[in-house]
Simulated scan of single mutants.
Amino acid sequence: MSAVADVIVVGGGVSGLTTALQLAERGLRVRVWSRDPAAGTTSAVAGALWWPYRIEPGALVSGWSVETLRVYEELAAAPAETGVRRVAGVHGGERLAALGPWARELDQVSEVPEGLRVTLPLIDMPVHLRWLEGRLAAAGGVVERRAVDGFGEAAAEARVVVNCTGLGARELVPDAGVRPVRGQLVVVENPGVEEWFTRADPASSATTYFFPQPGGLLLGGTAEVDDRRTEPDPGTAREIVERCARVRPEIAGARVIGHRVGLRPARDAGVRIEAEELPGGGLLVHNYGHGGAGVTVAWGCARAAARLVG
């Protein structure tokens, strides 16, 4: 028999788990319905450097991002437990004057010839997702493997439903503005790289980045809009390694230990956080459309969604 719930959160990635945690720690009885285990969600594939990347609307993103940054700075005190570390690196081609108001909240940042050198939270997502699940359980929340065909199924069991379904919102809401942005990564044995690097060309689907994670060096990447392929492309993988090796030549000889593909859940109109009534008097709260920055805004968006729950 299912547990009684005040709120059912549909979606078990970083947005769903963080939102559920906010609600559970406010004393609500929360269940999370997720089609996939956390390790099987798009969130688990993310390179997960904190940075407001490919996300709108800018006027709201700045506040959500800074709120989340402050949480990660606290969590970085226990990296083995939370998966969050503060790591230095360079954003190639960036300048402070070109960034949003959130950039004023950064410390340990300086302009160098290559771009911006800054220390930021870098999140080991498999570890962080397990930590979120554990903290949610400690607060009384329950995570269940369950797929849904409509929010009415959840509304039949709780007065409030929170939609954190990412790409699934395209069919479930339905919202035709939700679309995938395909990201491919290569994982190699780390040849001694201790700092991250990124360089994004807004006019291209190819990006260059590498993130030193405990399980290896993550190399990227791509940002291919409306591409739903979930299998790694061998040619793309070779190009990713080549681009990263132009920045750090030792990467060229690193042994490949894995490939990852994730479909970022972008939305043409940007992030949607709003509430609407369901037939029968229930409340549906939306929290989706985070694109390539779900990790970056997770806590700010979760708090905004939780306020709508009441």
Rank of each mutant, 00 (worst) to 15 (best):
residue 121 P to F: 12
residue 146 R to H: 12
residue 148 V to E: 04
residue 139 A to M: 07
residue 150 G to K: 09
residue 175 D to R: 02
residue 136 L to A: 13
residue 147 A to I: 08
residue 133 E to H: 12
residue 166 G to A: 00
residue 165 T to M: 00
residue 132 L to Y: 09
residue 167 L to K: 02
residue 136 L to I: 11
residue 170 R to T: 10
residue 128 H to V: 01
residue 144 E to P: 01
residue 148 V to G: 03
residue 145 R to Y: 07
residue 155 A to S: 13
residue 153 E to A: 11
residue 130 R to W: 01
residue 171 E to C: 10
residue 152 G to F: 07
residue 128 H to P: 03
residue 140 G to W: 01
residue 120 L to H: 13
residue 157 E to I: 08
residue 135 R to T: 15
residue 133 E to P: 13
residue 161 V to R: 12
residue 164 C to E: 06
residue 155 A to P: 09
residue 167 L to C: 02
residue 152 G to V: 07
residue 154 A to N: 06
residue 144 E to W: 01
residue 162 V to H: 13
residue 146 R to Y: 06
residue 170 R to C: 11
residue 171 E to Y: 11
residue 143 V to T: 11
residue 141 G to P: 11
residue 126 P to H: 07
residue 176 A to E: 10
residue 150 G to T: 10
residue 147 A to V: 08
residue 130 R to L: 09
residue 127 V to P: 04
residue 123 I to F: 02
residue 152 G to W: 03
residue 152 G to E: 11
residue 168 G to H: 12
residue 145 R to E: 11
residue 158 A to W: 04
residue 122 L to Y: 10
residue 143 V to K: 08
residue 132 L to H: 12
residue 157 E to T: 04
residue 145 R to D: 09
residue 144 E to G: 02
residue 124 D to A: 05
residue 122 L to K: 09
residue 148 V to L: 12
residue 145 R to W: 05
residue 169 A to F: 15
residue 166 G to E: 00
residue 165 T to I: 00
residue 144 E to D: 07
residue 147 A to N: 12
residue 138 A to C: 00
residue 119 T to C: 14
residue 150 G to C: 10
residue 157 E to W: 03
residue 133 E to W: 09
residue 150 G to H: 14
residue 143 V to C: 11
residue 135 R to D: 14
residue 164 C to D: 04
residue 148 V to Q: 09
residue 124 D to Q: 06
residue 172 L to C: 03
residue 132 L to F: 08
residue 155 A to V: 11
residue 170 R to D: 09
residue 133 E to K: 10
residue 144 E to N: 02
residue 149 D to Y: 09
residue 134 G to E: 15
residue 123 I to R: 01
residue 135 R to G: 13
residue 142 V to W: 04
residue 148 V to C: 05
residue 145 R to V: 05
residue 137 A to L: 02
residue 120 L to I: 15
residue 143 V to Q: 07
residue 171 E to P: 04
residue 173 V to W: 14
residue 149 D to K: 14
residue 164 C to P: 05
residue 173 V to H: 15
residue 131 W to I: 03
residue 122 L to F: 09
residue 175 D to K: 05
residue 134 G to I: 08
residue 170 R to S: 12
residue 154 A to I: 03
residue 165 T to C: 01
residue 142 V to P: 07
residue 147 A to K: 14
residue 137 A to H: 09
residue 120 L to C: 14
residue 166 G to K: 01
residue 137 A to C: 02
